[in-house]
Design a protein around this nucleic acid. Structure first.
Lengths: 192, 192
DNA sequence: TGTATCCTTTGACCTATGTCAAAAAGTAAA
DNA sequence: TTTACTTTTTGACATAGGTCAAAGGATACA
């Protein structure tokens, strides 16, 4: 999905607004393993992924990486609270495949929010949608077993497992790689 | 904190806009244990708490209640994804103290979003703020021990523990009441 | 001011998941 | 196709936190 179609999903922009908005994004081709943002740095870009996969991850004191979120094509990617509150990012942002992305700076985005009421609405709807998705994950982590959390993930990110490593998925789900491997072994989808 | 001050924290509304906006809210005095929304029902009001505490909770198959969020005075309260996506609520909303709240329907709120660009901006900022808070809890649940999660909660909701029951807090933190009781017993604040 | 009800603590025991270590299976590079 | 490296699986063992049951404390109301 391209950026224009994505924007139109949320708000029916007049064509000339849409064109103006899109003209403020910059296309970037990035390679697998490229780090977009480092822990401690303020993230001042919002990215739209046209093609590819990325993740945000947190580095623990003991050096272990904890995946916080996956971002796939047709979605926005950012270190959310760093971008919106302009505070140092707790996370790294990294691409996991060769990808085509479009980026916009905080300044330009704010200008668009101020210029177009429609854009402000888009921003609001995008936030609430993301909020919904985060709440779903929260529920999974708060009251589900390891097995159920794995099932949740398959609905949130279908076939992500062919694209990213087991270790990344395990930490995303708040479990170890060994536990996830054992869950997969008994892989009849859970029936209650 | 009252509604007017809360709105002004996010956006500097012109006085007449502010007045118009506030006039669409309805004041309600509700008693302790009042249920505002039931699981399965679409939540079509957003509440502002002027005084009091509430919570959202989920009822598991085995009848156990799991607190999902606490809402205190000076904050908005709702079954977020039910209100914004107009789908049946997964949660109950309940007040835990006698409270003074202000409510607005989805229709009226949408009309205000459409009427005032400033209000749309307020909506966007409110969503991103809530998103940030939810992400913080997500992190706590995803990679912290029971003890650390308890410490996290004390920063997110200082002295909530004097106002709501231990069982509510425990389920909010994804642990049993017994575990929380044991954590509290050894209550020297964790030093790393 | 006693009685019923609810909330919190404690103890004994159990289990899901983590930890550590090594083997096996993939993947890439030469 | 051999070598080196990364990822996944497996096994043995450890432990945080859950479960169940009962005893204390609070609180409310009659």
């Amino acid at each position: 999905m391209n950026l224009s179609d994505f924007l139109k999903q949320f708000v029916s922009f007049p064509p000339e607004e849409l064109e103006d908005i899109i003209s403020h994004f910059e296309k970037e081709i990035v390679q697998k393993n490229k780090t977009l943002v480092t822990q401690g740095q303020v993230c001042n870009k919002l990215y739209f992924i046209e093609e590819g996969v990325g993740r945000s991850y947190y580095l623990k004191e003991d050096g272990k990486e904890i995946t916080q979120w996956f971002f796939i094509e047709g979605k926005f990617m950012s270190s959310i609270e760093s971008f919106f509150q302009q505070v140092p990012s707790l996370y790294y942002l990294e691409m996991l495949e060769d990808s085509t992305i479009y980026s916009i700076t905080r300044e330009k985005l704010d200008a668009l929010f101020a210029k177009y009421h429609d854009m402000e609405k888009f921003g609001r709807l995008l936030s609430t949608e993301m909020l919904t998705r985060v709440v779903n994950k929260l529920n999974a982590l708060q009251f589900q077993t390891a097995r159920e959390r794995y099932d949740y993930m398959l609905t949130e990110f279908p076939n992500i497992s062919n694209r990213v490593s087991l270790g990344h998925i395990a930490s995303y789900l708040g479990m170890t790689q060994e536990t996830l491997s054992r869950i997969r072994r008994n892989d009849s989808p859970k029936r209650p």
